[in-house]
Design a protein around this nucleic acid. Structure first.
Lengths: 190, 190
DNA sequence: ACAACTATACCGTCCAGATGGTATAGTCAA
DNA sequence: TTGACTATACCATCTGGACGGTATAGTTGT
């Protein structure tokens, strides 16, 4: 006979089910019924794990944030501790995240979901504050460091929405350019 | 007796009604009924002007895009035709757009709407392609120019979602930094 | 000038379908 | 026994959209 899954296994499969739906069907189709079907459980079972849809979405944000931050930690560990190290890791982690084109849809849907689910938006805002704090402590001129963060976020934003994105070689060149610029303490232009 | 408004007057009041709702209530509350109420017409009247909700949303995107592009044209006219001129106008127009904090909500809702309304997304993608083309023709090294565009878009993205945004003085300083960098043909850092 | 007609700008009502959420009764392995 | 579910039924609410109807403005022929 089949064994019941543990609670945490089911939770993970629910998160992956949500992600699949967001990747291929979009936020509009992220209904409780659809998530339950995709995860191979019933709607009642889904609501056993998450009392409301908002709680589900918030947990989904935490799930993806953890993945990102774990990778970020790994990249920080590799990075030397020269000035701008965090910024370089942040840039690499952001770019990596978009290496699978299907993730563009996922993240675009996730950002769209923030508009509706205030708790998810709050979570993301707190995350950005944390990253920005580390960027400030990164040893670079704060304005210069923030400008570089915006360049990274802007690339990410373009990839996510597919807004006039660079081709692979140009993207690599721009990323290299950004990484190089993080080695300057301040704006090298005048 | 009261006169009927002209079609274009009503259309404009509908766009403003949509914008008000997006600014203060969010995309979730952008229903046909709510738009009709806000515009002071009936739901039937609204559907007279826009056959479907998708058509309404698409027209709303065109409306706001026209506002942005008109301002962009003005700023281009002011700008000298030295290299990077378009990029500077683009940066200024983007920043100006966010000077009213209530617009942050509006644009965040608009971007969220793109996830649902494919025609609006298509429109925005085409707009970005057009802007990117002008950036490419801006007389700067293409990779460098695109990097600067991403910096602008990243600032815009942060303001829109209120993600660890700079204070007013820091924002001004960063904008000045970006404008200064557009006067370099290529990455001035090494 | 005036009647006839057409086009425009709406209004008010109705509806099928979907959604999030609740409740309940039962299953099944450890 | 308990935790982890399934299955089903149900509800209140909301949504986009279709519809028939109406008042007014503008055009046209005579």
């Amino acid at each position: 006979m089949e064994q019941n899954r543990t609670s945490s296994q089911t939770r993970e499969s629910i998160f992956e089910a949500c992600s699949q739906i967001l990747r291929h069907e979009g936020l509009t189709n992220l209904t409780l019924q659809a998530v339950a079907n995709e995860a191979g459980i019933s709607k009642g079972g889904l609501l056993y794990h998450f009392e409301t849809k908002e709680a589900l979405v918030e947990a989904l944000f935490e799930y993806h944030n953890n993945i990102f931050e774990q990778r970020l930690e790994e990249l920080i560990a590799i990075e030397s501790d020269k000035p701008g190290a965090f910024l370089r890791a942040y840039a690499k982690a952001s770019v990596e995240q978009m290496s699978d084109p299907e993730n563009a849809n996922l993240y675009a849907s996730l950002f769209a979901a923030e508009e509706k689910y205030a708790s998810a938006h709050k979570l993301m805002r707190e995350k950005f504050v944390g990253w920005q704090r580390k960027i400030d402590q990164s040893g670079l001129n704060p304005n210069w460091a923030m400008l570089l963060r915006f360049a990274v976020d802007g690339l990410w934003f373009a990839e996510m929405h597919r807004y006039a994105t660079p081709g692979p070689e140009q993207r690599d060149a721009i990323v290299e350019m950004i990484l190089g610029l993080t080695q300057h303490f301040d704006n090298p232009g005048k």
